[in-house]
């Protein structure tokens, strides 16, 4: 793999994380009143049992973002903290660190999302490819219409319907959560099965509502690729149509499809965050939802940076895998 390509992709990784962190830093400061300060003062004025806790939070906050310091100094310091994944403390769950709360939730989100997205991507890509293949069976074309319609429905609304149908009405699946309440997470087979059982409906809602998107996009790529000279020439050479399809058309259509997987990550994650809310799944989406309701700013901003970091990492991995699929990459700009 050419070094400058690698360097460029790693630079993109840092730019994405930097952009996310910077948005977090400046946005609250652009509002007429600093909302974090407001929230802390409000918490302080309530007094009561938590008062000493709040004073500690305010002290931390002032120490970090004290207005006596110039803005650029605050900013540099903030970036340093982000680099160490230090997002401050939770206001609602003092003295828990925001990063601990988020890191506890992150595996749930990553697990659900990675598996569901990969399944949807694989199914959708295969379906889209078959839709563009003249020899594929006719029933696929009937299957495609409802799948495309499903892709027009937001993940979480489909999730709501599935919970109602499969969970509430038919009682086949749990109504929510990541595992049965009362059990403790442990590395046992029974617990793993329990987690799997709880993830089926949320996963299904992600898969069902995104498979059509991938199918449609892959179908477009296939139609484009099938007009290419190398596909016509492969057919002219008397290759079997199955070989032309898989080794020439499909193989090349997969390249732009993989690129759009990287580009769609943001969209996929946005949808999945809301799916977690619907299912009360113990991932970062639910953490975010609770944080928003209690205006737990440090947790909110921590979630945002962590998710952006995770996406940037996935994108980086995809970009590094990509040259293995496309030998031309070293020669392209």
């Amino acid at each position: 793999m050419p070094a400058d390509y690698l360097v460029r992709r790693i630079a993109v990784f840092f730019i994405i994380v930097w952009a996310g962190a910077t948005i977090n830093f400046f946005m609250p400061r652009m509002a007429p009143v600093n909302p974090i300060r407001e929230r802390l003062l409000q918490a302080l004025s309530f007094g009561g049992a938590g008062k000493t806790d709040m004073e500690a939070v305010v002290a931390t906050y002032e120490a970090r973002f004290g207005l006596d310091q110039p803005l650029w100094k605050q900013y540099v310091r903030y970036l340093g903290d982000v680099a160490q994944l230090d997002f401050g403390v939770s206001i609602a769950y003092f003295p828990s660190k925001a990063s601990d709360i988020i890191l506890r939730a992150l595996p749930w989100t990553l697990g659900l999302l990675t598996v569901a997205t990969l399944i949807a991507f694989a199914l959708g890509t295969l379906l889209g490819a078959l839709l563009a293949w003249p020899k594929s069976p006719a029933f696929l074309h009937y299957l495609s219409a409802p799948l495309l319609a499903l892709s027009a429905i937001p993940y979480y609304l489909l999730g709501l319907v599935l919970v109602f149908a499969l969970g509430f009405t038919l009682r086949l699946f749990p109504l929510g959560g990541g595992f049965t309440l009362g059990t403790l997470p442990s590395p046992t087979f029974a617990f793993a099965m329990d987690v799997l059982y709880h993830s089926i409906v949320p996963g299904l809602s992600i898969v069902l509502s995104s498979v059509g998107f991938w199918a449609l996009s892959m179908r477009g790529m296939m139609v484009t690729v099938q007009g290419e000279d190398y596909v016509n020439y492969a057919e002219a050479r008397g290759l079997k149509s199955r070989d032309v399809f898989f080794r020439y058309a499909l193989r090349n259509a997969l390249l732009p499809q993989t690129t759009s997987l990287a580009l769609a990550m943001g969209y996929v994650v946005s949808g999945a965050v809301l799916v977690e809310v619907v299912f009360a799944y113990p991932g970062v989406g639910t953490v975010l939802y609770r944080a928003i309701q209690t205006f737990d700013y440090f947790v909110i901003y921590g979630v945002v940076v962590m998710v952006i970091l995770a996406i940037a990492l996935v994108t980086l991995v995809l970009d590094i895998v990509y040259p293995l699929l496309d030998p031309r990459i070293a020669y392209k700009r």
Binding site: I16, A262, S270, G271, I308, I311, A312
Partner: peptide
Amino acid sequence: VLMTIPGLL
């Protein structure tokens, strides 16, 4: 870059 960042967040 902005497309990579989840819009919702």
